[in-house]
């Protein structure tokens, strides 16, 4: 079966240093997959390559069998690859509802896209539901710039989902969140419909093991191991890599 999103022999170089060195990755429809590894292993770089921000020096990226290596972030978002960044921001001078609406537009029904006044009607419908889902329903009229950090994370998730993604790329979504907010995040991702595949980069292994079907361990830009959380937990080389990385 053709994987939904796949990387084949992806290599990225920063000068003479290879941040990624021939990495392969497969993400199936609806799969929850996590990328772990010590700092500098190339996790975020791999997300950059998959999201279209970085063009690899070698290797290919395929989306549902189609080569998308040369497409930028905008073109990939239109094809259903959305990314949630480490630093959540949104558009600060737009309201929360407007943020979600703008994020929803590229994949929205084209007939209503440019109709005057249609903006607010559509906002009431699609974005209202989305804000309800992430728990920002009461804040639709607030400027995004006035939200707290945790709320911005919620907003970013709503924005990413409003783009009707097939793949969600999450870059350390728990960073900077309080314990309660992390709990909310885990629960939210757990109940996320299986129509969305998730690729998660996360430092906290408890979250990784709780959320993912499969895990890939990266180290020094290479794939060290891929398997179920149980297999990864048991694998000796992984423990070693982590012990060294932490030390």
């Amino acid at each position: 079966m053709t994987p939904l999103l796949s990387a084949h022999g992806v290599t990225v170089r920063y000068g003479s240093l290879a941040a990624l060195d021939g990495v392969d990755l497969r993400l199936e429809l609806g799969q929850r997959h996590a990328l772990i590894g010590p700092n500098g292993a190339g996790k975020t770089t791999l997300l950059d390559v998959l999201g279209g921000r970085t063009r690899p020096a070698a290797g290919r990226v395929r989306l549902a069998g189609r080569d998308v290596t040369r497409l930028g972030p905008a073109a990939r978002a239109r094809r259903g690859v959305n990314r949630i960044h480490q630093r959540p921001a949104g558009w600060p001078t737009l309201t929360v509802r407007e943020n979600v609406l703008v994020a929803a537009l590229p994949r929205a029904a084209p007939t209503r896209r440019w109709w005057p006044g249609g903006a607010r009607r559509a906002a009431a419908r699609t974005t209202g539901a989305m804000l309800e889902r992430v728990g920002l329903a009461g804040l639709g009229g607030t400027l995004a710039g006035h939200l707290a950090h945790g709320q911005r994370r919620q907003l970013e998730i709503a924005m990413a989902l409003a783009g009707r993604p097939r793949v969600l790329l999450l870059d350390e979504p728990a960073a900077g969140l309080s314990a309660v907010e992390v709990e909310w995040l885990v629960e939210f991702l757990r109940v996320l419909p299986r129509s969305v595949a998730v690729l998660l980069v996360e430092h906290r292994l408890d979250l990784v093991y709780a959320l993912s079907d499969t895990v890939t361990v990266l180290r020094d830009g290479r794939t060290l191991a891929t398997g179920t959380p149980a297999e990864i937990r048991a694998a000796e080389p992984v423990r070693q890599a982590y012990a060294e990385g932490v030390a």
């Binding site: 972030p73 905008a74 073109a75 239109r78 959305n82 994020a103």
Partner: peptide, 8 residues
């Protein structure tokens, strides 16, 4: 951010 959402 706008580009990342898929806008031209």
């Amino acid at each position: 951010r706008l580009r990342a959402s898929g806008h031209r």
